[in-house]
Design a protein around this nucleic acid. Structure first.
Lengths: 170, 170
DNA sequence: GATTGCATGTAAGGGGTTACATGATTTT
DNA sequence: AAAATCATGTAACCCCTTACATGCAATC
């Protein structure tokens, strides 16, 4: 039975927009980010490709015993519609990085808006973490996790500031 | 029907080891890290607490219309066994942060080993990202995601180095 | 010619989210 | 007394992982 695999669906579609790839290629590329967001298993990746093929959003061709997938115009259409969606509150790092991977599908304005949305969200959470860290002081809490969160929040804000300041980098 | 919710199970158990909490308290605390790893929904959190209670790993008491959960000695035992497990390859940021939150359950040696494991993993992936970024140069790839990954990898390595250099911080 | 890496796939089951529901307590 | 926040819960459904399985291609 063909399932939706919604998140992966658009990630895969976005990668195929850049370049025709095999399932294996996609897996290898996404492995580069596994320390951040993990990497999808073949058990989800291949079914996702089959579903995209069945929905005519990608084509599948054999080439020296490898299956090359190419995005169709219908696929590009669907990807555009997906990218145009209003952004939700939820922006875990995983979701955020996924959007960065698909950033080629955004207009510069859309991308800027997205980055700013992320920025304000992290700013708020950073203050919250700072407060929590002060509350524990010499307490028995989990200061390592709080310290890590605070550090990474600060660094990501730095990165966002740099990227937003230099639009040509986008 | 009571399901297992394995990952959450130990996260919750670890938080309860520090302090008696309600489901709501746990949710609010984990929300502090939502920009990094998301936050579990109540639809998974409450069933996880019920399962822990049914397994006698936590106790449940009413207190002014709130349900306070406390870890039992059986729960502490199970948590220790879980923390003693050999580490797997998989170390997404989510898994890593989860371990940091539970760091109070590790011996200093165990924690050091875990941090070093993470360190060597990120070092390898950082080199890989660097290579990928060079390969694209002026190409049509997803340089924003690669740049983000590389930046965050570098920063996390910095953090790990600092923490490992100052054991009293742990 | 055997081992390792490339490459693709399926079935069962697990762990989670979404959407829906409810009520108590505090604040305006 | 209305609105917002605190607080808990369930059921359906979804997406993904795990474990298993296969075969070709390249290298030793």
């Amino acid at each position: 039975m063909v399932k939706n695999t919604v998140k992966l669906r658009y990630l895969v579609l976005g990668l195929l927009k850049e370049k025709a790839l095999t399932g294996y290629d996609i897996k290898v590329f996404l492995e580069s980010f596994s320390w951040l967001i993990g990497s999808p298993s073949y058990g989800s990746l291949y079914p996702a490709l089959h579903a995209l093929r069945d929905d005519k959003l990608v084509t599948q061709e054999m080439e020296s015993s490898r299956k090359i997938y190419r995005i169709t115009s219908a696929g590009q259409q669907e990807l555009r519609e997906w990218a145009d969606q209003p952004l939700t509150q939820e922006t875990s790092l995983k979701t955020f990085l996924m959007h960065l991977i698909l950033s080629a599908n955004y207009s510069r304005e859309g991308l800027t808006a997205y980055l700013q949305h992320r920025q304000s969200q992290i700013e708020a959470q950073r203050e919250n973490l700072q407060q929590l860290l002060q509350d524990v002081e010499s307490g028995s809490r989990e200061p390592l996790a709080l310290a890590y969160g605070l550090f990474m929040a600060t660094q990501e804000l730095q990165w966002l500031e740099n990227v937003l300041a230099e639009p040509r980098e986008m």
